[in-house]
Design a protein around this nucleic acid. Structure first.
Length: 491
RNA sequence: GCGGGUAUAGCUCAAUGGUAGAGCACCGGCCUUCCAAGCCGGUAACGCGGGUUCGAUUCCCGCUACCCGCUCCA
């Protein structure tokens, strides 16, 4: 990278300088893969999550057909616990996939990694090919547990029977509550259940700022529908979710929608698309995942009924042990749905738009970061750093300044500040030159600055300075709230 | 997990085997009538732990974090 400060380095520096994102436990030297949101960052992330919740759940109209949707549908929300019954993760497949015993070879030129239970069948990459450990050069570690799920203990006693896990995804909380929602929320197919919450994955290599964190927040929808209609709903959610990012400002060529190839599909999926963003820390032409829209079929509900499933030809069947019993038993509860239209019982199929809130926040920050030039008092261009965040996402919606700290301007400005504070997160500042105050708000992404000047004292009007253009508009005092409400939109 | 690099104030840098200076930022004051002005004053740092040494921010070792490349990415 050399001496030159990269765009990403500047964004990371801004995040720290202005209080968006800090390293977790920084005063103790930090802890890899964990990050904290500062005073501005928490507002940005809350705005992002609230925009999602509003647009997907509370703002959803279930009485009409949304653009692109096959039929009207209902949306409800859920907030489930982070620690769940351990059997959930055995049945979901996470346990088997996440907690292998692995053996590494430390030998020069080898560095291979083997599953401990497969080592007798494995082949050492060194020639001539033998089993791992049989070469002179082999230097195997003891079998080590690679737990990609965080383990914890329920109850004060540290005992294997009390082992539990921090959830690696929020989805299972939705599936396990499917029956509860059906019986309480008066929903009929098709409908969606949404949830926002923390998940935890013990990433081997946390990297790229907050992009691959070990603790992160997901925004997930499990959309339940009839099998035959699932392809149409899959297409709907793909396009809908892509449009959501676009509408909030990720409209550039750095955003893309990409269908997975068959070889990329997860163990449960029969179709997946990613919404991806070309983060500045990636090589040119590379993209990082913001959200996956997966067609999960009936895998999850069936698993929680019958037991952990494995692929069998075109479909799935319960994985069995030597005695023919399920390897991981399901709940045995009936999670099917009685279809009143056809009089049949069916297991709904699921479309899952699963978004990373932290990744989205990072993408919006990267997209918004902008260096431009604006002329100073003498007309010569001066560099400026500005976050061109969508007003819905901006941590502070407006700042209120007295032009100078005299002639009663501060008092007038404070009055306006208090009025606006009833509706929005606004900021008051009377310190330093007006230009410095504008610049500071530019770095925070504040879309509007309202300035009380001499004319305000005469007729009550103020100037409203727009962040991106730096243009100023004169607005009558009693119209400020309405003016902002119109410009800020749906916040 | 492997290999390479980095670590001094919020940021960017400097100096030094005898416990560190600056610019910007930040805070206070004066001044300032629209885009980082000026003046005065102030807060603020050697990532952590060992070792060598009379003495370590400096030399050595370990750890941690971050960056780059592999590996991994359900």
């Amino acid at each position: 990278m050399g001496k030159q400060t990269s765009r990403m380095d500047k964004i990371v520096a801004l995040c720290k300088r202005r209080g968006f994102i800090f390293q977790s436990s920084e005063i103790y030297g930090g802890i890899g893969g964990f990050w904290d949101y500062g005073p501005l960052g928490v507002e940005l992330k809350r705005n992002l999550k609230e925009a999602w919740w509003r647009d997907m759940v509370t703002g959803h109209d279930d009485t009409s057909v949304p653009d692109g949707a096959p039929v009207p549908y209902a949306m409800v929300g859920l907030d489930t616990s982070i620690v769940m019954h351990p059997q959930v993760w055995k049945v979901s497949g996470h346990y088997d996939m996440f907690s292998d015993l692995l053996v590494d070879c430390r030998a020069e030129g080898c560095k291979a990694r083997f599953r401990a239970d497969h080592i007798s069948n494995a082949r050492c990459p060194l020639k001539p090919s033998k089993r791992p450990g049989e070469h002179e050069a082999c230097d195997l570690t003891e079998p080590r547990e690679f737990n990609l799920m965080f383990k914890t203990y329920v109850g004060a006693l540290v005992d294997p029977v009390s082992e539990a896990y921090l959830r690696p995804e929020t989805a299972q909380g939705i599936f396990t509550n499917f029956k509860n929602v059906l019986s309480t929320a008066r929903v009929k197919l098709p409908f969606g259940i949404a949830q926002i919450g923390k998940s935890f994955r013990n990433e081997i290599t946390p990297r790229h700022f907050t992009f691959r964190s070990r603790e992160f927040e997901q925004m997930e929808i499990e959309f339940f529908c009839r099998s035959a209609e699932s392809p149409a709903w899959y297409a709907y959610w793909r396009d809908r979710r892509h449009a959501w990012y676009t509408a909030l400002g990720l409209g550039s060529e750095r955003l893309r929608l990409r269908d997975h190839g068959a070889e990329e599909l997860s163990h449960y999926s029969c179709g997946t698309a990613d919404i991806e963003y070309a983060f500045p820390f990636l090589e040119a032409g590379e993209f990082g995942e913001l959200e996956g829209i997966a067609h999960r079929g009936d895998f999850d509900l069936r698993s929680h009924m019958e037991g952990k499933l494995v692929r069998a030809g075109d479909g799935f069947e319960v994985e069995r042990d030597g005695e023919g019993r399920p390897r991981h038993a399901g709940s045995g509860k009936d999670l099917s749905y009685f279809d009143e239209e056809t009089g049949e019982r069916l297991t709904p199929h699921v479309i899952e738009p699963s978004a990373g809130a932290d990744r989205a926040a990072l993408a919006f920050l990267c997209e918004a970061y902008c260096e431009d030039e604006i002329p100073d008092e003498k007309g010569s261009p001066q560099p400026r750093v500005v976050l061109k965040l969508h007003p819905r996402l901006a941590p502070v919606k407006a700042a209120v300044f007295p032009l100078v700290r005299k002639d009663g301007m501060p008092q007038r400005a404070v009055d306006i500040y208090r009025e606006l504070k009833r509706w929005w997160n606004v900021y008051y500042d009377e310190k330093g030159s007006i230009g410095r105050r504008y610049r500071r708000q530019d770095e925070s992404g504040t879309p509007f600055c309202i300035t009380v000047d001499q004319q305000t004292l005469n007729d009550g009007s103020v100037t409203v300075r727009e962040r991106d253009s730096t243009e100023q508009t004169r607005v009558a005092g009693r119209e400020i709230t309405a003016f902002l409400r119109e410009r800020l939109g749906y916040v």
